[in-house]
């Protein structure tokens, strides 16, 4: 479990959270983020992604609180989940506690499963089933991996490939 937290106390303070989790068999990854907007003109951006396979479970839990004094603040939260099979689980539990009117707040959540049609499409281009799944997952993670320094991005792609090799056979 991992819940980093930001408290925006100074006028114009900003925070940004980017995270990705990958839950395999027997894992329940419960991650999220908390932010308290406690001053004027503060802003926060949350971009969370999760992947679950082999019955793994990903839970996203967040709190965004915008206090009464935090006029003209902005917050944008986006969470996306990808499930690789029928037995995996994804939960999204966002709490948005907005105590003033003068704010811009958005929350976006998307949950999806890799479709057989997409896999067939990629296989018709010569990719094996494992290659196809890994490509879809790497594409899903790309908005996160492109933010990473290149060494880490390469490492993350390798981890995805390793995880998916285990998913089949």
């Amino acid at each position: 479990m991992l819940y980093p937290m930001s408290i925006l106390n100074g006028e114009g303070a900003k925070t940004e959270f980017t995270g990705i989790s990958f839950a395999g068999k027997g894992q329940n990854l419960d991650n999220g983020f908390k932010v308290i907007h406690n001053a004027k003109n503060t802003s926060s951006i949350v971009n969370a992604k999760s992947i679950s396979k082999n019955g793994g479970k990903c839970t996203y839990r967040s709190l965004v609180r915008i206090e009464e004094n935090a006029k003209n603040s902005k917050s944008s939260v986006s969470c996306e989940s990808l499930m690789l099979d029928d037995i995996s689980i994804s939960d999204t539990i966002p709490v948005n506690d907005i105590r003033t009117d003068d704010v811009e707040f958005s929350h976006e959540a998307k949950i999806g499963k890799i479709s057989d049609k997409t896999i067939f499409y990629l296989m018709s281009r010569g990719l094996s089933e494992e290659d196809a799944k890994a490509m879809i997952v790497r594409g899903f993670a790309y908005p996160i991996s492109k933010e990473l320094p290149v060494e880490y991005a390469v490492e993350m792609n390798n981890l995805i490939n390793l995880e998916l090799e285990g998913a089949i056979g």
Partner: peptide
């Protein structure tokens, strides 16, 4: 044969409704 084996042997199919793959560029794909 499996679809990918057939494709590698040399059959290609243009789809009526091509699938969308977010995060994978046309070049890389």
């Amino acid at each position: 044969w499996k679809t990918d084996e057939i494709a590698r042997r040399g059959i290609f199919m243009s789809f009526q409704l091509p699938e969308e793959i977010p995060g994978v560029s046309v070049t890389n794909f």
